[in-house]
Computed example of a mutant assay.
Amino acid sequence: MYQLSDYRFDLPEELIARHPEKERTDSRLLHLERSTGEYHHRNFADLASLLSEGDLLVVNNTSVIPARLIGHKESGGKVEVLILDYREGMMAKDREGHFSCRCLLKASKRVKPGTPIHFGEGLSAVVESFDKGVYHLRFLSEGDFDAQLEAHGKMPLPPYIKRDADAFDKKTYQTVYAKNRGAVAAPTAGLHFTEAFMSAIRAKGVEIAELTLHVGYGTFEPVRVDDIREHDIHTEWYEVPQETADAINKAKADGRRVIAVGTTSVRTLEFATTEDGTLHPGAGACNIFIYPGYKFKCVDAMVTNFHTPESTLLMLVSAFAGRDTIFNAYEEAVKHRYRFFSYGDAMFIA
């Protein structure tokens, strides 16, 4: 279970969801029982019937920024820019007056330091440095940087979607409870929730708590080592508010379920929980790598999407439910034509 090859599976190309469902809760839901390995085919709206009074649902309230920018050098050559660390850029802006951060660039050839890039009226950047495949850019904006980013940027859809983001993606590739700007990828399990659905489960007696993990592009970074234990996982900024820690610690003390929405919520909760099962409030860099053999300290159940082969996310759900159990469920999902990945269908593992 530690070999990268243990996490390969065949997925027909046509099962990769490239567009969301018309209604968020119209997606399907594979309900997987961890204790028995049994699975049940449901619709996402059925999740309400699977939740009980007293359950505590934990969501990641990060907000995806339109991090992909299409620009041109003064020579006319096209340059595609992906902002990697919005929080870093805003901290630089507070210190120095300019948004400045690490970025990925795609161009016909390597872009030299000192090169200006123009994105349209009111927004440009200068390449400051290049190191190990990552560029550092200093952005120049007329007026508010966020306003210019909203005007010129596109949502950073995952590479497997294989299409350009459109105007609808600015809404559909964002959870309805997003509030803290900083992610360059959506916490996609949360895309299935609507405000009406959340109101309905609250009325049922389900408690909802929020935390933040700014999902980085590293979530798509492939594992390049044969022994997964040697993988150096990406780091993302997180915050667990005091009120969230208090609510979760009380739920655990009461014997109520803590249900994480998405692997990002799982990683944050497990990172911030000590061995005695206490969740501590705080903020900082989260770099926990969860794979089979890990003992969960906080999370009792999770809502998640179907993940890419050989990904750290697939390893995380395999740790939670067991590798064989997950792969049996994935085989069933393929057989029944579930939609996979960010805009795809969901699982409830409990």
Rank of each mutant, 00 (worst) to 15 (best):
Q3H: 13
P12L: 15
E21S: 14
E23S: 09
R24T: 08
S27K: 06
L30E: 13
L30T: 10
E33T: 15
R34T: 06
S35R: 11
T36S: 14
T36V: 05
A45F: 13
L47S: 12
L51W: 05
L51E: 01
S52N: 14
G54A: 01
D55N: 11
L57M: 05
V59Y: 11
V59M: 15
N61Q: 08
A67W: 02
L69D: 05
G71P: 10
G71H: 09
S75Q: 00
E80K: 01
E80Q: 02
L84P: 03
L84M: 12
Y86F: 03
E88P: 08
M90F: 06
A92H: 06
K93S: 14
D94P: 07
F99I: 06
S100E: 14
R102H: 13
V111E: 09
T115G: 07
I117Q: 08
E121G: 12
E121P: 11
G122P: 01
V126N: 05
V127D: 07
K132D: 15
L137A: 09
L137T: 08
F145Y: 02
F145M: 07
D146F: 12
Q148K: 08
E150S: 11
G153K: 02
P159E: 02
R163K: 01
D166C: 08
K170T: 13
K171L: 10
Y173M: 03
R181S: 13
A183W: 08
V184N: 00
A186I: 00
G190I: 02
F193I: 00
E195N: 10
F197A: 06
S199A: 15
R202K: 10
K204C: 01
L213I: 00
G216L: 07
Y217I: 14
Y217G: 14
D226N: 10
D227A: 08
I228T: 06
H231L: 08
H231N: 03
T235L: 11
T235R: 04
E236W: 02
E239N: 07
Q242A: 15
T244A: 04
A245E: 08
A247V: 04
N249Q: 03
K252R: 15
A253G: 06
D254I: 10
R256K: 15
R256E: 13
V258K: 01
G262C: 12
G262S: 06
G262V: 09
T263G: 00
T264G: 04
S265H: 02
V266A: 14
R267S: 09
R267V: 05
L269D: 07
F271I: 00
T273L: 04
T274H: 15
E275T: 15
H280K: 15
G282H: 07
G282C: 11
A283D: 11
C286S: 08
F289G: 07
F289D: 05
Y291F: 14
P292C: 03
Y294G: 09
Y294E: 07
K297S: 11
C298R: 05
V299G: 13
M302H: 10
T304L: 02
F306M: 09
H307E: 01
T312L: 06
T312I: 11
T312V: 04
L314C: 09
L316V: 13
L316H: 05
L316P: 00
A321D: 01
A333N: 07
R337L: 12
F340D: 07
F340P: 00
S342M: 07
S342I: 04
D345R: 05
M347V: 03
M347N: 05
I349V: 13
